[in-house]
Each structure stands twice: as C-alpha cells, then as structure tokens.
C-alpha cells in the first residue's frame, strides 16, 4: 500500500516543476494524488483503529463514522477535504482545473489531516 506521504511528495514535485508530458494537466493530477493520499491515510487509520469499518467499501460511510472516533470538528474537516478533492477528480461541466493557490492550500490541508489521523490512532 502506498503511504500518504509518497502521494504528498509526488504532488509537491509535480507542482514545483513540470514533469515531461504533464504540461497543463498537473492541477488535476495533483488533486487526484491528494485525494489518494487522504484515502490512504484513512485506510491506515481504520486498519489500526477499527478494521471492520475499513472493510466497508463505501468511503462516504467511512467518513461519516469518523466523527465518533476523532470528534465532529476533525471529521468535518476530513469530509470537506474529501469532497473538494473528489470534485476535482471527476468530470464536471463548466469547471476548470484548480489553481496553483488552491492546490497549495489543499496540499497543506491534506498534510495536516494525515498527521492528525496518524496521531489519533489508539
């Protein structure tokens, strides 16, 4: 399983300098990698905390469950992050890719959430 940090590092690399062939597509790619980082962190958390929840394939249910484990504030933060990253990864009419500023913010936010989930393990 790929660690959250691997995804985060790759995003940082993508944003800093264009990889060959990624001209202009890095915003969407970065957003999707960030979402994968978040999901990876969630998977690790559930494996350590409640493997039964982790076995549930519905990510939305997993996130709803989270409030009972890490508190309402933190779980809302994870939920918002997950939804905005999911949105960026799906095709939506009329919407353009995220800007560099938005991605920087999301990257920092995912980094913090990953850290938070890691600390909250039992």
């Amino acid at each position: 399983m790929t660690s959250p940090q691997t995804y985060l590092d790759e995003v940082e690399r993508l944003m800093a300098a264009p990889a060959r062939g990624t001209r202009g597509l890095w915003p969407r790619a970065s957003a999707w990698l960030l979402r994968l980082a978040l999901e990876s962190a969630l998977d690790q958390y559930w494996t350590d905390t409640a493997p039964a929840v982790g076995a549930c394939r519905n990510r939305r249910s997993q996130i709803l469950m989270l409030s009972r484990y890490v508190g309402a504030t933190s779980s809302r933060r994870v939920a918002m992050l997950w939804w905005s990253l999911s949105r960026a990864g799906h095709h939506h009419s009329y919407e353009l890719a995220l800007t560099a500023g938005e991605l920087t913010h999301l990257h920092a936010e995912v980094g913090e959430v990953v850290k938070l989930l890691h600390q909250r393990r039992p």
Binding site: T6, E10, L14, A19, R20, G21, T22, L25, A29
Partner: peptide, 9 residues
C-alpha cells in the same frame, strides 16, 4: 501522456 510518464512511479 500520464501513462507514458516514467518520472512518476
């Protein structure tokens, strides 16, 4: 393009 990008693992 991504499928061919060896730079990304």
């Amino acid at each position: 393009a991504l499928a061919k990008t060896d730079e990304i693992p």
